[in-house]
Every structure is written in C-alpha cells, then in structure tokens.
C-alpha cells in the first residue's frame, strides 16, 4: 500500500465512521425524552444547583465524576427526602462522621436539588447500577429471621444503619445498641426520633403496629 493510499484510507475511513456516529447520535437524541421523566423548572433549577456547588467534583452521578464520595444516581430512592434536605444543609449536624462539607446550600436550593436527584433516579440507565449479588441483609445468612429481624428488613433499615459490617454509615451503627439503650427509650425514639435525638433526620416509625414495634425493639435490645 502506498503512502498516499494509506493517507486516503485514513481520511475517508475516518469520515465514514464519523458519519455513522452522527446518525446514531441523532437517533439517540430523538429517544432521550422517552427514557426519563419530564424536566420541570424545579428539576432544572436543581441541576443548576448541582453544577453551582460542583457536586461532581466529589461524587459520581450515572457513574461519572470523581470517585471520592458516593454515587448519587439512586440516592433519592434510598434515603428519605427529609433526611437528604437536612443533610445537604448541614451534614455534620445529622451525621458527625460525615466528610461532606457545609456549603451554605439554602432551603430552596436543597428542595430543587432533591427534585433533580429524584429525576435522575428515574432515568432508564439500562439497569445500572446492578443489584448487589449479596443482598444488604442484617448479616444473618441461612437462618430463619426472627420477627424483629423481618421488620428490620421490610423497613430497609440497613439503607442507613450498619449491623456487623453490613449496612449504611448514614446513621449510627447498631451492632451493640442493646448495650446502650433500653426498651422504653427505643420505642419512644421509633415513634418520634427528634424528641430523643436533637437534629435527627431519621423518619418516624409510629405507623408500625404495636406488635411490629415491640418485635423490632426486642431485636435491637438483643444486639449487645
């Protein structure tokens, strides 16, 4: 092959593949609206908050970004909105161990940002992120769960709390909570967290039946 032929192959071949790329791009652009919810003013305002504080400088979203803080794609599904709002406005007041700085995010900005994160959580990402193979259970494999453990699972407590190394670091660890709190405190706290822990962002669980609350509390008390 002569140099001129090689050069022409390079130039025309590149243009050929670029043309295919353009066609696929146009097709993709046309399909995007159907793959996500409608973008409201609030969602867009939230996106602008995301950019203003350069959240992607620490976090990832849709898996892209800086690999320093957790991915935000499904955060609006995993954490209660009230928790997110409180955390965004003053992280360490909610979780003293949080590394996230206090950036001066206003109440309005927080609301908008949460609307944006809610939108992101509903984008069709071809199934990303995949569900973990080992479920985030309460660390007891192969045995029949107790009544209290079942409540713990159905309420998804491990999204925020850790027992025996499994679960989240958002809220306090519960591995030895039975040595710290008694039954009365625990039931009162489940019904109204803020009355027992100032600045708490934990949702209230008073809607559970008396039986469920008792079983859950018995489980907590057993964690010595």
């Amino acid at each position: 092959m002569s140099n001129k032929a090689a050069r022409n192959l390079f130039i025309y071949g590149s243009l050929f593949f670029f043309a295919i790329f353009i066609v696929l791009t146009i097709d993709t652009m046309g399909k995007l609206d159907k793959r996500a919810p409608a973008i409201t003013e609030e969602v867009n305002a939230g996106k602008m908050v995301w950019h203003k504080y350069d959240c992607i400088g620490c976090h990832t979203i849709l898996g892209n970004g800086s690999y320093f803080a957790p991915d935000m794609t499904k955060i609006a599904e995993k954490k209660p909105k009230d928790y997110l709002k409180q955390f965004l406005m003053d992280p360490k007041s909610v979780n003293p161990k949080a590394s996230m700085p206090k950036l001066g995010i206003s109440s309005q900005e927080a609301d908008n940002l949460i609307a944006f994160l809610d939108w992101i959580s509903k984008v069709d990402t071809n199934g990303w992120p995949p569900k973990p193979i080992l479920a985030t259970a309460a660390g007891i494999a192969g045995k029949e769960l107790s009544a209290g453990q079942k409540v713990y699972q159905t309420q998804n407590c491990s999204n925020c709390h850790m027992i025996n190394g499994i679960g989240g670091t958002t809220g306090p660890e519960l591995t030895h909570v039975g040595s710290k709190r008694d039954k009365a405190w625990l039931i009162g706290h489940f019904k109204d967290p803020k009355a027992y822990v100032p600045n708490s962002a934990m949702p209230a669980y008073g809607y559970l039946s008396e039986e469920e609350l008792n079983n859950l509390t018995d489980y907590m008390v057993s964690l010595k």
């Binding site: 590149s14 993709t28 990402t125």
Partner: peptide
C-alpha cells in the same frame, strides 16, 4: 479513528442512552 469514533459508545452504556 476506525476503532475510537464508534468506541465512544463505551461511555454510553449506563447514562440513560
């Protein structure tokens, strides 16, 4: 170019495309 132009697609797996 022949591999890289359409190879851009490896960034389009999970972002909503």
């Amino acid at each position: 170019m022949f591999t890289g132009i359409l190879g851009t697609g490896h960034h389009y797996y999970w972002i909503g495309t």
